[in-house]
Design a protein around this nucleic acid. Structure first.
Lengths: 114, 114
DNA sequence: TTGCGTTATATTTTATTTTATATAACCAAA
DNA sequence: TTTGGTTATATAAAATAAAATATAACGCAA
């Protein structure tokens, strides 16, 4: 039977020896960049500052061996950002992990006795 | 084969509809209170302020149906805090969850391809 | 060549969180 | 009855984090 009061939740993330480099929030950011073609639009959608979004993208690009996002300024629309093939692969990979975790959480919620 | 650069990590926690009420850090706090018999000593060990530790304990006691920690001031040693039977049960339960998550993480690290 | 909307970056300001400080209440034991 | 070390609580100070602001660079399109 399920527990009506408490819920079991969780997160997974990718880290190096000393820092987190990819998790739930960054994945959402990547997806919104992919959908909008713009770091700024993605930031607005997630109610974060452009600076914060740019820092996150920059950090990911630095930590992974190759860029997950490439960007250009000027031109039609003022500029653009796209998620690379590698970035898309990372997103998909993370989705699988996330899905598996949801199953894990669902299974273990059943056993909660408090 | 395992991945030499990246690691997969994660956490689980108990929450109500609107807030987290028990996770990794609070469990460690409970354990240290149990071991030392003191909120203050537990806080010192975890390098957090007494206030922060007390707030966490108070929050847990409020959110769960019954207290996980009971405390008394004055007397021998100046006062004391103990983890209730219910609290001990919660700790053990969380340990099982944590252990299962570690296995989950270990299994899925194998599949990391980036 | 001018304007547009974005990327990229630095700096300042504001807000939030954390830590420090102070103080009262408490009670067993000396 | 005094001491000691803790619980419990409030307030002030300090440290961090977040947000706002400003500005240059950019290149396509009108």
């Amino acid at each position: 039977m399920s527990n009506a009061i408490f819920n079991l939740n969780g997160r997974v993330w990718i880290e190096t020896a000393d820092e987190k480099i990819l998790g739930h929030g960054r994945i959402e950011l990547l997806e919104r960049i992919q959908a909008s073609g713009s770091i700024r639009q993605a930031a607005l959608q997630m109610k974060m500052s452009y600076k914060q979004a740019w820092d996150l993208v920059n950090h990911m690009n630095n930590r992974f061996g190759q860029p997950l996002v490439t960007s250009h300024r000027g031109g039609k629309g003022g500029g653009k950002a796209i998620v690379t093939e590698y970035g898309l692969k990372v997103i998909n990979h993370f989705h699988v992990l996330h899905q598996k975790l949801q199953e894990f959480l669902k299974e273990n919620l059943q056993n909660l006795t408090f």
